[in-house]
Write a protein that binds this DNA or RNA. Structure first.
Length: 311
DNA sequence: AAAATTGTCAACCGCGCCAAA
DNA sequence: TTTTGGCGCGGTTGACAATTT
């Protein structure tokens, strides 16, 4: 048997690709109404379409089929997708069987463009469906058994953990500048914040959250003294409004920046804007002992927050 | 007002499964 | 038992729209 290359028809002509025209749609609908679903391989020729069978199947199942439901996903549908995704993962076609009129493609698109972000904003990892802080615990705990760093003064490890602290800083900054995260939007409260971060007790401010999220924080860097409390106490409270000036006042000053491609002026501008630096680059370089870190000591306002830890 | 960025969604691609040869 | 080909699935792309800078 000879298999035709998929982009050539039996007359050796190039098959059409890309968006479907109204005329092509009409031909396909007309054919499907008369013959129903059959062999996709021979359909294009019979229906007078210069397309491959696969393209016709896709157009029919994802767009032209008469039983397709249009419009926004309802809350029920949304919850169904989240529920089944937590059990099945990216099995879009299986998930689609629970949502009449919705196609796997549509569900997949909706997940990738909207639902995933909604979950992240709610403090839930869209891959594991677990609170994001579970990962934070692992993030610090796995690499930081008690006292290990103090006993092995490996500069690369110190740099790596500096990077981790910086990452934590930025997570806290995000939490501090956005409305409190909660499940699927709406107004937040400290109660549901605790709930969605997987904490057994209620927390009312950021320092409590920080202590709860990173129990081994005092072991991260040998330069950190045992008394971490004074630093925690300087962390601002959660803002309980969207007032922009309040949010600005609550910016946690930047900790350290790697001396990468940022000039001093750029570093200052990043510090002052609260912008998040490029962590891919940072981690990529963190195994290199030559990496130079700088604290922003010239700027008293920005450095006072962190200098007790590192100087 | 224009340019840049981000979001949405239809469509494509390659792979793997499975039935038929 | 192995090979072949149809089909469906999940990941990705790219065009267009909407929003932001």
């Amino acid at each position: 048997m000879v298999r035709l290359p998929s982009k050539i028809n039996s007359e050796n002509e190039e098959l059409k690709k890309g968006s479907w025209t109204q005329e092509e749609d009409e031909k396909l609908i007309d054919y499907m109404q008369k013959h129903g679903v059959g062999s996709w391989q021979f359909l294009p020729k019979k229906a007078g379409l210069n397309r491959c069978g696969k393209s016709c199947r896709l157009r029919w199942t994802n767009y032209l089929r008469p039983d397709i439901k249009r419009g926004n996903f309802s809350l029920d549908e949304e919850q169904t997708i989240i529920h089944f995704h937590s059990i099945l993962g990216n099995k879009w076609s299986t998930i689609a069987t629970s949502l009449p009129g919705r196609t796997d493609n549509e569900i997949k698109n909706y997940w990738n463009t909207s639902l995933k972000k909604k979950l992240i904003r709610s403090g839930i990892d869209p891959n594991t469906h677990q609170p994001l802080t579970t990962h934070l615990h692992n993030f610090f705990d796995l690499s930081l058994p008690s006292n290990s760093i103090a006993m092995i003064p490996n500069p690369n490890l110190i740099l790596e953990n500096l990077a981790k602290i910086q990452l934590l800083h930025n997570i806290l900054q995000l939490l501090n500048t956005n409305p409190l995260p909660n499940l699927l939007g709406g107004t937040g409260s400290s109660q549901n914040l605790s709930q969605f971060y997987g904490l057994s007790h209620e927390i009312s401010n950021q320092k409590e959250l920080m202590s709860s999220m990173v129990p081994n924080l005092e072991n991260i860097n040998p330069l950190i003294s045992s008394d971490f409390t004074p630093i925690l106490e300087t962390i601002p409270e959660f803002p309980h409004s969207n007032n922009e000036s309040n949010n600005k006042d609550n910016f946690i000053p930047a900790l350290v920046f790697p001396e990468t491609n940022l000039s001093s002026d750029q570093t200052h501008s990043v510090v002052n804007s609260g912008e998040i630096p490029n962590y891919d680059l940072l981690f990529m370089n963190s195994t290199n002992a030559d990496i130079i870190w700088k604290t922003d000591m010239e700027d008293e306002a920005n450095s006072s927050f962190w200098k007790d830890i590192f100087i």
